[in-house]
Design a protein around this nucleic acid. Structure first.
Lengths: 154, 154
DNA sequence: GAAGTTTGCTTGACCAAGCAAGCAGGGGTT
DNA sequence: AACCCCTGCTTGCTTGGTCAAGCAAACTTC
């Protein structure tokens, strides 16, 4: 965990340093900007949008709480509360899991699907404008591979 | 603000879609991972580290609250609370601004500088391991340019 | 130079997230 | 079938952030 082998203590090259300095934009400014766009536009915070979107793609429009939490990069307790919020809006329902009665499935309701469909243009526009537009002409595949590896290191 | 011109509603290409799907790693997993590393290692949250670092590079080791907030991608009130925390640890002091008595400067103390110096290896290691290592061989300069543009769009 | 406005920062109320503890339902072992 | 531990989710508490309102100093306009 806090292993800091010598290799990782090699000083940053100027290019690396510049990249690290710009990292705050992506880690802090970007999620807030996208979230603010979506809240301003459709009253749907990014976390809730992400949950709805993941559910809409799952078989039976439902997922176990723990799966959904992982898919949304949220802790399990965070997902409990997010789903509670969505439930009070009627966008999601909780259904006991058939094959394991300890488990619950979050199920996307018709209202939830409608909300998602009404909101995706806003999400798409925000993502393009705040993020994708700035990567025009770059090798998106390589970039994706790099992004996917992040947060993977144990 | 919520302008969603047609261009922004063009559907995502498969490559764009994959990139967007991997974005959560950078926006959510990455900051938590770096922060957790630093807290586990040196008991210094990333936000506080960033504030100390910015101060250490400023002339006179001091900055106006609003400058510092912007540099750390934090709201002004968020920075007020961060500086308060740092102040109670003796790492920073608040000094009235001479040329404008409404303003305050956050000043890095010697203890703050020492704390920073004892913590940077941990930050460096976390940033390399969680982030830079995954971008080996890529064009860091272009990437930096892209990152810098993010969060800029009004 | 006094009144009204704007600016810089802090404070109060609130909210979303995390962690750790709790609880309820499996599943093995005897 | 009684026990025990393990697993899946929720709950209580804390933390760290935002927004909006407040306060004090500085500008502006007359």
């Amino acid at each position: 965990m806090s292993a800091t082998p010598a290799e990782h203590l090699r000083p940053l090259s100027p290019d690396e340093e510049a990249l690290v300095r710009s990292l705050g934009r992506v880690m802090y400014a970007l999620p807030r900007a996208i979230d603010a766009d979506m809240v301003g536009d459709r009253q749907l915070p990014l976390t809730e949008y992400t949950a709805l979107m993941n559910l809409s793609e799952a078989p039976g429009r439902q997922m176990r709480m723990s799966e959904l939490a992982a898919a949304c990069h949220l802790s399990l307790s965070g997902m409990t509360r997010t789903v509670t919020r969505l439930e009070t809006q009627g966008l999601v329902e909780r259904v006991r899991c058939e094959e394991d009665a300890r488990g619950w499935n979050a199920v996307l309701t018709d209202a939830g699907l409608a909300r998602l469909q009404e909101s995706w243009p806003s999400h798409l526009a925000a993502v393009r404008r705040r993020f994708l537009d700035h990567f025009e002409g770059m090798d998106l595949v390589r970039l994706t591979q790099a992004f996917q590896r992040i947060g993977t290191t144990g």
